[in-house]
Amino acid sequence: MAREKGLHDHWYDGIVDAFRIYIPGNSTYHTMRARNARTGTWFILPFIIGFLLFMLKPIMESFSMSLSDVVLLPGQGYHQTPVGFRNYHTALAVDPEFNKYLVEEIGQMAINTIATLVLSFVIAVILNQEFKGRTLCRAIFFLPVILSSGVLPGIEHQNEFYDMMGGLAESMAESSGMDISATLQDLLGASGVAGSVFEVVFTMIDSIYDIVMASGIQIIVFLSGLQSISPSLYEAADVEGCSGWESFWKITFPMVSPLLLVNCIYTIIDFFMKNDNRVMELIYQVTYQDAKFGVSSAMSWIYFGVALAFIGVSSFIISRMVKSYE
């Protein structure tokens, strides 16, 4: 769409433009561009209303709560007295657990995100090949989308019965000297290869169930990317004498890599919003058991800020690394 010259030079030009388009009685109002813009606005009007009423207003309120001391009044309603940044200070410096949990969860998340991306990419590549029983395998790999949604993972998390049984199996394995990952770890550690790296790898392996359960959507996204690659590219590569390995790195990976960003962001958000996340549990506990609404909203704002920073950094890195083929 052709834009008028000089417009969109300043940050306030959008607002000026809005006045010209939405308010009758000027030269721009009756142009085709203005009419189209008004139609478009009708389409997104539900979102605008919803966002202002049910998102922006609660966000403002929650932010102001985090800056004040909130006391619930008997009956309905609550009373706020502004205290500045004291709640943030309480969350970060006074609360004994918040800091520790936050750091631990972020570390865990970094590992999990990388593992999820790699695993889901590998699985998507495998599921994209031709073999017998492919449909069945696809169906099974997407089951986690159902099985790890809403109430289910939270309940599974409390599933001490299975933990107990798992523990039993583990101790049996240990007594018979069959704990594979520990044995391997000993072996590799003994041969003096960089120990901490292996430790990370082994935590990944031990939590592979969680990782597979969390990567349903990512597999779908990667698979959709793989299927949109035109087969003629591979044909051309084959004719030119590319091996499968080469065409994987020269065709498959670059074509799918833009989706890496989408998946990375999705994984991070998913991890941050999980119910069985310990920071979330702490926030929930502070809200409902200790009834410290101010502190809990301060905590969730800190948490949100950290999440946002993490998403920003990782998307910056990935978008630098990855070429986008428009």
Binding site: M1, G14, I15, D17, A18, I21, Y22, R33, N36, A37, R38, T39, G40, T41, F43, I44, F47, I48, F51, M55, P58, I59, E61, S62, I269, F272, M273, M280, I283, Y284, S297, S300, W301, F304, A307, L308, I311
Partner: peptide, 25 residues
């Protein structure tokens, strides 16, 4: 499909909607 004023801002709001955990509000 449409160009309208403050489109980027509204789309940023959509992204916000994805990112903000509902427990915050």
């Amino acid at each position: 499909r449409y160009e309208f004023p403050l489109k980027k801002l509204w789309f940023a709001c959509v992204v916000m909607l994805i990112i903000i955990p509902p427990t915050t509000i």
